[in-house]
Each structure stands twice: as C-alpha cells, then as structure tokens.
C-alpha cells in the first residue's frame, strides 16, 4: 500500500456532545443515576454496620432524617426508578423472545417486565414492612 500523504482535518467531539439531542441526555442521566444509587447503597451499608452500636446508630438516624438527606433519598429514588424503567426498556429490545415461531414485540416484553418488577417490589414491601 502506498503511504497516504493527504492532509486531513480531525474532528473532535465537544464536551457538550450529550446536550445535542434528548436521547444522549437521557443516556447521560441513566449513567448519572448510578452515582446516586451508589451513595444510597453506601449509606445503607453504613446503617447496617452501625446496628451494633446504639448511640452511633441514633446519631446516624439523626443525619438520615435531616431534610437534606430526605431530599437526597427522594432524588436517589427517582433516579433508581428512572434507571430501572430505562434498563427494562433497553433490555426488552435486546431480548428476543419467540412465541409460536414469532418474536414477541419489545413493548409487550417491557410491559411484562415492569409488571414482574412491580410484583417483586410489592412482595419485598410486604416482607419488610408487614412482616409477612
């Protein structure tokens, strides 16, 4: 092969690329959601660790019951739901479930997955708060 001598102009991606269209933004929010979920899980783990020490646990409760932390938890919850819904949205497109030789439409797979998710969430709720 002959060596290329053509001058080329290299296009660089701007740092603001994710603002270019709503789908890129939705993707970035999905990525960002993991940070909120991580912080929430870490706090939860700390809470479990502190169960051994009554005083430390009470002090910790005072922190998580502060308005700031309640607001953070609400945002983290919203992000967790967003992450879950979009994750199932994407997964439903990837899963190719065949039924009687035909592929089940992604929208139907998504519906099934969300319903299953809701049922499991309800069971967890019963287990934790109703002591079933």
């Amino acid at each position: 092969m002959t060596e290329k001598k053509t001058a080329t102009y290299v296009q660089k991606m701007p740092a603001s690329w994710w603002l270019r269209n709503p789908r890129y933004l939705a993707y970035m929010l999905r990525e960002l959601s993991s940070i909120f979920i991580l912080v929430y899980i870490l706090t939860f783990l700390v809470q479990i660790l502190l169960l051994r020490d009554r005083n430390a646990y009470d002090a910790f409760l005072a922190i998580v019951e502060s308005p700031f932390f309640v607001a953070f938890t609400a945002v983290a919850f919203a992000f967790a739901v967003y992450h879950g819904v979009t994750w199932w949205g994407l997964t439903s497109k990837v899963l190719q479930i065949s039924f009687r030789g035909k592929t089940v439409p992604p929208a139907l797979v998504l519906l099934g997955a969300i319903m299953m998710w809701a049922v499991v969430s309800f069971l967890v709720y019963l287990l934790l708060f109703r002591g079933v």
Binding site: T6, T8, Y9, V10, Q11
Partner: peptide
C-alpha cells in the same frame, strides 16, 4: 462526525 475529513464532505 468522528472521522478525519479528507475534503469537504468526504471522510477517511
């Protein structure tokens, strides 16, 4: 986007 440009709209 993302490709080196040789000329105008022609990319490598």
């Amino acid at each position: 986007d993302h490709f080196p440009v040789i000329k105008d709209l022609v990319v490598d």
